[in-house]
């Protein structure tokens, strides 16, 4: 395992050379991911690794893509999607226009899940989903809406567990090991790069989803991001986090009312 001081040097170098700030990332996970890359490439010593990062921007870029966790799935935590389907969407339905922001959308599986639910609720035509991530590579995948075909069995089970009643396979075309999702679903998606560490609010939303992103941040950065969401959320808008994430260490909970069991909060003032 790399030493703490080595990790801190890398964090400083990345900030100095590229302006990206990992200083507020949770150390345990970051260290594991950096260590993995370091071991993988067979560097002679940490200094060699550091100079590669400093002087090879292409290598740096790939490294960032490797460090950031991009594990996701469609209808991840079906109970969460069921709550969105049954309790959140009906409350958004009367609005003339519905703005959603999926922050840290990774390769887009959850964005397509949301589009499917909006479609089934008859709301997709009047919705717009902003989907952002810091990783440009995963956004390219997300834009294409192409996911591995071998995952579809699990995804269709998740879909059913979330209350979906259609034949899931109608949403994609299977071809040579890939599933290409219908373009109609992507029509209301806008993908762009956005860094929660340093970028600001860019719009006002009715529903913000940021699932399993805050776990990689320390408490200070979590506060910053929750406040960014707060600024970006309309009154009576909804904020959804991952199943083990909470806003309670970050913002006055009198401003928000939590939906019974799920990690969904409504901004009440």
């Amino acid at each position: 395992m790399i030493e703490d001081i080595e990790l801190e040097t890398l964090i400083n170098d990345i900030y100095e050379y590229y302006g990206f700030d990992f200083g507020s990332y949770s150390r345990a996970s970051l260290k594991r991911r950096v260590n993995r890359i370091y071991q993988l490439e067979g560097f002679k010593n940490f200094y060699e690794f550091l100079s590669k990062v400093r002087y090879d921007p292409e290598y740096y870029k790939n490294m960032i893509d490797e460090i950031t966790v991009n594990v996701t799935e469609m209808f991840r935590d079906p109970a969460f999607y069921k709550a969105v389907r049954n309790e959140i969407l009906p409350q958004l339905a009367p609005k003339p226009f519905i703005r959603l922001w999926h922050a840290g959308c990774s390769s887009g599986e959850e964005v397509y899940s949301m589009a499917i639910m909006l479609k089934e609720a008859g709301l997709l035509h009047k919705s717009i989903i902003y989907a952002t991530d810091i990783n440009s590579k995963v956004l390219e995948t997300a834009k294409k809406g192409i996911f591995p075909l071998r995952m579809m069995k699990e995804y269709s089970e998740n879909y059913r567990d979330s209350g979906g009643q259609e034949d899931f396979s109608k949403y994609y075309i299977a071809n040579y090991g890939i599933a290409k999702f219908n373009e109609e679903l992507a029509e209301k998606m806008v993908f762009s790069q956005h860094n929660l560490v340093s970028d600001n609010s860019f719009n006002e939303f009715d529903f913000i989803l940021c699932r399993n992103v805050l776990i990689y941040f320390d408490n200070d950065l979590q506060k910053r991001v929750i406040n960014l969401f707060d600024e970006s959320l309309s009154i009576l808008g909804f904020l959804a986090l991952g199943t083990k994430e909470t806003i309670k260490y970050s913002i006055s909970t009198t401003k928000y009312k939590q939906l019974e069991k799920e990690k969904i909060w409504r901004k009440i003032k």
């Binding site: 949770s26 150390r27 345990a28 996970s29 594991r32 991911r33 966790v69 594990v71 399993n212 776990i215 990689y216 991952g242 199943t243 083990k244």
Partner: peptide, 21 residues
């Protein structure tokens, strides 16, 4: 440890979670 997350330990006696591979 909750399902579907790796459980990690941080300095300062806290635990953190990770959804990586």
């Amino acid at each position: 440890a909750p399902s579907n997350y790796h459980l990690l330990f941080e300095k300062g006696e806290t635990m953190s979670l990770d959804t990586s591979e």
